[in-house]
């Protein structure tokens, strides 16, 4: 099984995640796009683990998942807290740091 298609797929998913972060305004959907990016890199890690013949990549992917879990927990808690005070989950609300 060729390695290249998996990597290309990973790249495509990553790019779509990036564009999603840029384009969506809802904070939760942006977060979901970030998760998509993380998943894409996980795929690449697992693929390279198979290409190199050892399990280091899988271990790395495992750790990525754990950290992603922690990150989602705290991130969503923050979004919820902000939503409580602002009544809106739009990313564009935090725009005070401007000229």
């Amino acid at each position: 099984m060729d390695v290249t298609p998996f990597i290309v797929l990973s790249a495509i998913l990553f790019t779509i995640g990036c564009v999603g972060v840029l384009t969506r305004r809802n904070a939760i959907v942006v977060f979901m796009c970030v998760e998509l990016m993380l998943n894409a890199s996980n795929l690449a890690l697992v693929t390279f683990s198979r290409a190199n013949g050892n399990l280091e990549g899988q271990i790395a992917a495992f750790f990525v998942m754990v950290v992603a879990a922690a990150e989602v927990v705290v991130g969503l808690a923050i979004i919820m807290t902000i939503f409580r005070t602002r009544r809106s989950a739009s990313v564009d609300d935090a725009s005070l740091l401007k000229y």
Partner: peptide
């Protein structure tokens, strides 16, 4: 140039990308 600092996080993210 300062007009580029429009305060929106998405614009900054675009710059990052």
């Amino acid at each position: 140039f300062r007009l580029a600092q429009n305060g929106f996080v998405r614009s900054y993210a675009l710059a990052l990308l």
